[in-house]
Amino acid sequence: MASQYTVAHQRSATGIPTSKLALWWLLCSEIVIFGGVLASYLMFRLTHPEWSFDASHTNTMAGSINTFVLLTSSLFAVLAHHAAEMKDGPKAARYLMMTFGGGLLFLIIKGFEWSFEISHGYTITASRFWSFYYTAAGIHASHVIAGMIIMLWVANTARKGKDLHRVENVGLYWHFVDLVWIFLFPLLYIAK
């Protein structure tokens, strides 16, 4: 079923596979979206020292565990890529499902954390800090969810040994999601 790809898709004048090149451009557009959120947050934060009081109510432990979970799922993503390079589809799919599990764990921890905070009155309208806290982490979480859905789909095809190049692409996306969290974590949780 190679004909699902156009001739245009199969050419590679730059030497980078087409889908991977498109993924790099997607990441570029994501960099500027998160860049806009983080730049806005930073500008507010630097002019509002009083936000550190709000920030001290965030749960650093939950944030740290989540960082660890995402780092670990990133490791599984790169191991899945390695397995795909070895043409071992089922193994790649297994690693991808572990990555998926990492994303799920991340969201579960996040859910508990947020419901705890909301029940204590720290809602999105409580103050500008909490607005940014929920908006930035919410945009990030929506990327986590999107990545998980794509990962299920890729794992499904990879299990049959098809389209193994997609394993690397979804992995690259996942690493980017991880990278964003690496910066969100100190900005939202640690700086107090």
Binding site: S29, E30, I31, V32, I33, F34, G35, G36, V37, A39, S40, I124, T125, R128, S131, F132, T135, I139
Partner: peptide
Amino acid sequence: VGPLMAGAVMLLFDQTIGTGF
């Protein structure tokens, strides 16, 4: 367009949820 996408989400929250970005 990235920063404006971020800004649009923030403005949407301002309009609908009542945040005050």
